[in-house]
Design a protein around this nucleic acid. Structure first.
Lengths: 199, 199
DNA sequence: CGATGGTGTGAACGCGCATTCACATTGTTT
DNA sequence: AAACAATGTGAATGCGCGTTCACACCATCG
């Protein structure tokens, strides 16, 4: 019944993806090595061939999230013609990302965060800050090109944008998909855009 | 070393408060009967005189949160002269509430939510919806009195308001109090108010 | 061909923690 | 005063789960 041998790098990737999937579907509490191993097709102890322990796996998941967030920003920057449109596209992508991976929200608040090494909290803050930083760049760019009012701090706009999406996402997955996340985000974006658009 | 006997109702209150405090300071993972009992001044097994189990304790914490959120809305409604001012006061109160009780944010996303009985998720959704409902009332009132644009759905405004506060709160407690939550909320409110204020 | 290192396996250990139970204490009712 | 219900105590139980370890397999290198 032995699984085929795989390179550690591949396994690490598989394990991180599996972990994120578990967190998304069943919450961080359901994240245990048995389940992870099950998805990857390994025996629990095999996990320790590729990671020092559960904590390291969680760190890997965080890096995965960081990558995907970065990829989203890069994508919208490429697709759009102006920064304001880019922000709108980012809102769409971000909400989709959060809805498809409930785990992202839960991981950030997870007890795993607070129980783990203190570095954990710092690391999560870093991931979010990275993301905010990139959004801030978009905003600043929009201000320079006069698409966005320049009497507002770019960083503050970025945080607002995050909040715009976060609440609907929470409500969506608490409501088991009942909450009209699409409509809510749509309206919120319009209000938001009117408030920040350059005159 | 025996504690004085107390009425079950009093104990239930004490236990819920203790639990919320633990969640806030150390995360939901640190929420165990030993710790709760320690704070209340009881022996672990005594908890079971007042609650059926840990799950019931968590439910009690949720009710505690519901009460406090309701109290906040009632307070600002009483303090303010117009609905728009009420909303601004509510933002202040809500951010304070979230910062003082980190536990509220963590509890909502907690694995405990997803692991517990399915009713748990519904219950949390209910708590938030209650709160949203009350905010929506304020908004609608503001629209009728022409303080708020009436071409916007009251419920959508309410959700936006929540998002306005939530992100800063998250960043604040991830950053260990470094993040300038006050300044952020201030700016966000101004942008938001300009967007929704009746012409 | 033998050695070595990387990967997978199954069993076992140990800890944290929720829960239970028999017993003690206190307050109230009859 | 006796009986009973409510509350508090300490010990014991049992489970989930992270982690470790000795062993097996297999590729690559010398």
């Amino acid at each position: 019944m032995a699984s085929e041998k795989q390179n550690t790098e591949i396994r690490q990737e598989q394990i991180a993806v599996a972990a994120l999937k578990i967190i998304g579907r069943h919450g961080t509490r359901a994240l245990n090595v048995v389940r992870i191993a099950g998805i990857v097709g390994l025996v629990p102890s095999a996990i320790y061939r590729h990671f020092g322990g559960k904590d390291d796996v969680i760190d890997a998941v965080l890096e995965l999230v960081r990558k995907r967030l970065r990829a989203n920003v890069a994508a919208v920057a490429a697709e759009s013609r102006d920064p304001l449109e880019a922000l709108r596209l980012l809102v769409d992508r971000h909400i989709t990302f959060l809805c498809e991976n409930d785990g992202v929200s839960t991981l950030i608040f997870s007890d795993q965060v607070y129980s783990g090494p203190k570095k954990r909290k710092v690391r999560i803050y870093g991931v979010i800050n990275d993301y905010l930083q990139e959004i801030t760049k978009l905003v600043r760019d929009g201000q320079e090109k006069l698409f966005i009012r320049s009497d507002l701090e770019p960083a503050a706009i970025a945080v607002m944008l995050l909040g715009l999406v976060q609440s609907p996402a929470i409500l969506w997955h608490l409501s088991e998909g009942t909450f009209a996340v699409q409509s809510q985000t749509e309206q919120a974006w319009q209000v938001f855009e009117r408030a920040i658009r350059g005159n």
